[in-house]
Design a protein around this nucleic acid. Structure first.
Length: 415
RNA sequence: CGGGGUAUAGUGUAAUGGCAGCACGAGUCCUUUGGGAGGAUUUAUUCUCGGUUCGAAUCCGAGUACCCCGACCA
């Protein structure tokens, strides 16, 4: 991508209404734009990151036999009445269509997926299965917060599992735990599995929390085994339920994912049943598992930045390489072009700062702000030695590499 | 939903009730090219509506938007 063509604009200062570090940096670097309270546009750079996160999640879901589907956001009132959530779900977006027909913009999809599953499940032979989608959710939050961390409209991965019994659910629950840890690791953040309230779903749930100053949750991390406990249930918990120790670190954190054992909570209202081996009718046992993509993206930035800007972890960076051309004479331009084409031909995603009218300082400052992990510089100075300069975003050390070796060097680092 | 705050150029900010200014950005021209470079020049319906006043960015009222704290929160 030629930077001269990229739809973006950087800001030296964040708009004054922006407070959280992640939204300040994402706004300043041209990844997102606020459309209103709790609603954001993702610009080309931001959408690239979001898509990378989406693909990581998709891969990990497929690896645990998840099958991708897509359900509607616009959903009929009757489904929500069946579970009582038309009234009890206080952030439900309700709207009226023609003929006074009422709808909910779905904040989650148990009410949609349960009747869907009912059409497929007849016998124990149809179970288990696992369905997920990556789709926009709507929640009419009483108060939005901290940029992408709490919005009214957000992309969410929601996975639902269907089982014949509790033990099978618990086994799958463990698999999802592993998949979640992979996802967060690949996104470059450390998360803590956190025991939390089940809300309206179940007695307990598990959340995946990452430490962040802008976070709205308080968690207590066990010094011994690293299990965390959400403040919302901590008052009743003196010792770590996993290892029985009682020393904890208290931290502010962002919840990037969660998991619930639903049991038959939604099977009952939707009469989600199957026939077992003895031809007896039983309720399907369900689990649900969510990850907020935009929030995860913001959490990555909360975790990984310095005073100059964002530092993207490799797998979620909008581009792998930021190629900067300094000076505009023919030799520099041709050499930079060649490096750009070589890398592209090898499948490396490159943002190429080809702008002739920008001073070097500005280009470097922008590159630091945008935060692509590898920076290459082609200039008269480097070309004297027939070289390209290479620097990692988080390091200060620069290195010169012969121009004909650079694409190979980058491709080696990739793997 | 309760409480608090803010609203001036694209962004950040100034202006006793008395000429709307500055910095950066952006446009044009020139110079410059290794850490947001320099010069010239251009760039505003002070959120909206109403009121007070000779005169309102400034005071008053209403509205709207956004932010923060709390409550709430799969």
């Amino acid at each position: 991508m030629y930077q001269s063509k990229l739809f973006y604009k950087t800001l030296k200062k964040a708009p004054k209404s922006v407070e959280a570090v992640s939204s300040a940096l994402l706004t300043r670097a041209g990844f997102i734009d606020q459309a209103g309270a709790g609603s954001y546009s993702f610009l080309p750079l931001g959408l690239k990151v979001l898509k990378k996160i989406e693909n990581i999640i998709r891969e990990e879901m497929i690896a645990i036999e998840g099958q991708e589907i897509l359900m509607p956001a616009l959903t009929p009132k009757e489904n929500w009445q069946k579970t009582g959530r038309w009234e009890s779900f206080d952030v439900l977006f309700k709207l009226k269509g023609n003929n006074k027909k009422e709808y909910a913009l779905a904040p989650t999809h148990e009410e949609i997926i349960s009747p869907l599953a009912k059409k497929i499940i007849l016998s124990y032979k149809d179970l288990p299965f696992y369905l997920f989608q990556i789709q926009t959710k709507f929640r009419d939050e009483l108060r939005v917060k901290s940029g992408l961390l709490r919005t009214r409209e957000f992309l969410m991965k929601d996975l639902y599992s269907f089982h014949t019994n509790q033990r099978d659910l618990e086994n799958y629950y463990k698999k999802v735990t592993k998949a979640y840890l992979n996802i967060f690791k690949r996104c470059g953040i450390k998360t803590y599995k956190t025991l939390a309230s089940g809300g309206s779903f179940s007695k307990y749930s598990h959340e995946y929390q990452t430490i962040a100053e802008s976070g709205e949750d308080i968690i207590y991390i066990c010094n011994n085994c690293q299990l965390a406990i959400n403040r919302e249930i901590k008052s009743g918990v003196r010792k770590c339920p996993d290892c029985n120790q009682s020393k904890f670190d208290k931290k502010k954190a962002v919840e990037v994912g969660n998991m619930f054992q639903l049991g038959d909570k939604y099977s009952l209202p939707f009469e989600l049943k199957f026939q077992d081996k003895e031809s007896k009718e039983k309720s399907v046992i369900m689990g649900c598992y969510g990850i907020g993509l935009g929030r995860l993206m913001a959490a990555v930035v909360e975790n990984s930045h310095d005073n100059k800007g964002i530092i993207w972890p490799k797998e979620v960076s909008p581009f792998q390489v930021h190629l900067i051309q300094i000076g505009d004479n023919r030799k520099v331009k041709q050499s930079a072009q060649k490096v750009y084409k070589d890398l592209q031909n090898k499948g490396v995603e490159v943002l190429y700062d080809d702008r002739a009218d920008k001073a070097p300082g500005e280009k470097f400052a922008e590159a630091d702000l945008i935060g692509i992990p590898i920076r290459l510089v082609v200039s008269e100075k480097t070309l004297k030695n027939n070289c390209v300069e290479i620097k990692k975003r988080e390091k200060t050390k620069v290195e010169l590499v012969k121009i004909n070796r650079i694409s190979r060097k980058i491709c080696c680092q990739k793997s």
